[in-house]
Design a protein around this nucleic acid. Structure first.
Length: 106
DNA sequence: TATTTGACCAAGA
DNA sequence: ATCTTGGCCAAAT
């Protein structure tokens, strides 16, 4: 199994990193990709979309680099609600003080 | 195997 | 501020 390599790990790594983001904090697609030393910003989002909001991974805590909410398998609106419920302020479809709530890997 | 798609990003007009 | 263009990577078709 696993003849694959980085490719397969890529998704797994995304989930792993994301799973360590605590409630009330958020991260961005770029940050995750960067943490994996990759530039597959899109690949990150792609991985999320392909996998359900599964209880194992809080996909709703991932937003775009400019503070926009980004997409969500269950609907953007839903994602916004979840974030607000965790204490994230969202204004005009964008996260307020993104860096303040941004969880840093490393 | 090759092409297309997508929950993105940055820079240019 | 908005719109367009090019680039990036992995997964699906």
């Amino acid at each position: 199994m696993k003849n694959n390599t980085a490719a397969r790990d890529f998704s797994a790594q995304c989930y792993r990193l994301l799973s360590m983001v605590p409630a009330g904090k958020v991260t961005t697609y770029k940050e995750i990709a960067a943490a994996l030393e990759s530039k597959g910003y899109r690949a990150v989002g792609n991985a999320m979309n392909r996998n359900p909001d599964a209880p194992r991974v809080p996909c709703h805590r991932v937003v775009k680099s400019d503070g926009s909410i980004g997409g969500y398998a269950l609907g953007q609106q839903r994602k916004i609600s979840l974030l607000r419920a965790e204490g994230i302020s969202i204004k005009s479809g964008k996260v307020e003080d993104l860096e303040m709530h941004l969880f840093r890997f490393s």
